[in-house]
Amino acid sequence: MVKSELIQKLAEQAKILPKDAEISVKTVFDSMIHALKSDDGIEIRGFGSFKVRKYEGRSGNHPRTGNEISIEPKKRPFFKVGKDLRERINKKTTG
């Protein structure tokens, strides 16, 4: 399923205009991105949680040339599936 299909399903199931469904889906993901950008974690009950992990800069070696290079500090988002959803996915697809 891609975003446009999610929007279409939302419009049908919530009985709202496709335009409103589109703004709703965009708003949800934009807000989540904004939260992560502010280093705020996200907790969606019944779904899972998102957290930002920070990595310090360090020096490393280029795997091919062996030259020493500096690795910049970075941030990466991580998702942890909620217990309910984890069980739901496991039950349905492995029986």
Partner: peptide, 11 residues
């Protein structure tokens, strides 16, 4: 609904 639609698709 948004999260439920995603969940049922993943399921």
């Amino acid at each position: 609904l948004i999260f439920e639609i995603i969940r049922s698709s993943l399921e």
